Computed example of a mutant assay.
Amino acid sequence: MPLSIDKKRSHRIATSIFFFIAGLTYSSWACRIHDIKSFYTLSDGELGSVLFALPVGLMISLPISGWMVTKFTSRKILIAAGLLFPFVLCIIGLTSHIWQLVIVLFLFGFLNNVFEISMNTQAVGIEELYKRSIMGSFHGLWSLAGFTGVAIGTLAIALNWPFWMHFTLIGILCWVLVFYSWRYLLPEDGASESQPLFAKPDGNILKLGMIAFASLITEGTMFDWSGVYFKTVVTVPEALTTMGSIAFMATMAGGRFAADKFVTRFGISRILQCSGIISTTGLLLAVMFPNIYTATLGFLMVGIGVSSVVPLVLALAGKSKTMAPGMAIAAVSTVGFLGFLIGPPMIGFIAQATNLRWSFLLIAILGFGTTLLASQIKKMT
């Protein structure tokens, strides 16, 4: 029996809230990275080593996340992740030694991937109810939450809030949202207990994953290093170190909400090709002319460029003819999110060997992979 409009809307709103929680939690950590770097007096290379705990946590979680979502349904796993992910953020604010920070960041990366896979599986189920693409709106909420997290982080920096106070405030806000919305999540998402723990993705799924990887390596760099870039390369005052993050998050959020209309008019392949060109051009602008005006404009362009890539490839993955939607989403999300987490520590290592501007130049080149791989989209649909 078809669900009523109100019932479908309640499921959509609840899932959207969890996307908001995920974005708010991660961006709250990311916008304080340059402060944590100063607190522990880390070099660029040392910061890169510390940040590497995040992708290690993700790698360990890969088979476990897919199995949990398949075994227990995305609803149960998403509720647990919604509670635990902000909790680990709070613990980050309480660390006082590097080894503690590394352990907690490992857990943060682990739970981030669990959150991503479970909430995107929910989103695929919601799309089935609506019989049209709405993935862009979910990811738009993630980006809007990121913008909100950076704005709150800017205020926290201006007021000299310690990490624990800032992160605890975010944790409490996220837990309130979880307790409000968990009961409205989609009860069944099509997961089947008969699906295997390890499923080998086909060539099309791997291509989609690599497109997401090329885009998310740029996105991860923006999240984790934009504050450091503006402080050390653009050399802005302390109060303006989040300017790049705000510019990036604002256009990324707007681009995701507008993505569906542009795809309808121009097609997925053309939008993805343009996305890579725009993001690469924005990064090159920030690298070649590192002043507050051109760097901010460049970061605005990067936000536009990466905005629609992940929602579009996840929507395509959900239509896979060889894998169940949830498993396909997990495969593409996993490969793509590796770029999100591997990019930031790689930036640190390269910056230590050369400088931060050369690191951003490399990311610009890698991000152009979105454009190159998008030419294969027609063969996949």
Rank of each mutant, 00 (worst) to 15 (best):
L78R: 05
F85K: 06
F85N: 07
D35W: 04
F87I: 08
M68R: 02
F52M: 15
G45V: 04
L101W: 03
V102I: 11
L107N: 04
G109E: 09
T41C: 06
T73P: 00
I98R: 09
S65A: 15
V102T: 07
G45W: 07
T41A: 14
G93F: 03
C31T: 15
L58Y: 03
I36E: 15
L58D: 01
T95G: 11
L62I: 08
I91E: 11
V56D: 06
L58E: 01
L58I: 05
I91M: 10
S49M: 11
I77H: 02
V69E: 01
I36N: 12
L89P: 01
F72Q: 12
T95W: 06
L83W: 09
G66D: 12
T95H: 11
K37W: 02
D44F: 12
E46C: 03
F85M: 04
I92T: 13
L89V: 01
K71N: 12
L51R: 07
F106M: 09
C90M: 12
L107K: 00
I36D: 14
L94H: 10
H34D: 14
K76D: 11
D35E: 15
Q100G: 07
D35L: 09
S38Y: 04
L83M: 10
A53C: 07
A53S: 14
F108Y: 13
T73A: 08
S65L: 03
R32C: 04
G23Y: 05
A81F: 02
P86S: 13
P55L: 04
A53E: 12
E46H: 10
T25A: 06
H97C: 00
C90A: 13
K76W: 02
S27H: 08
A30Y: 06
T41N: 15
F108K: 03
W29E: 13
I77Y: 01
G57P: 00
L42I: 02
M68L: 14
I36T: 13
V102Q: 15
V88D: 13
G48H: 09
P55W: 05
I91A: 13
F87V: 11
W67K: 11
L24S: 10
G109N: 04
Q100C: 00
I60A: 15
I91V: 14
P63H: 10
I60G: 01
I98K: 08
I64E: 07
L62M: 11
K71Q: 15
A81S: 13
F87S: 11
M59H: 01
A53T: 01
L54Q: 04
L47Y: 05
L62P: 00
I77N: 12
T73N: 15
L78G: 04
I98Q: 11
Y26T: 10
W99V: 03
L83T: 05
C90F: 11
L24T: 06
P86F: 08
I103W: 02
I21W: 05
F72N: 06
L42Q: 10
G45E: 15
I91T: 08
E46G: 07
L78K: 05
H34I: 07
I91P: 00
I21D: 07
Y26I: 12
S96D: 13
F85C: 05
G23P: 08
A80K: 05
R75Q: 15
R75V: 00
F110Q: 00
L101E: 12
M59G: 06
S61Y: 02
I91G: 05
C90Y: 08
D44G: 01
L101F: 05
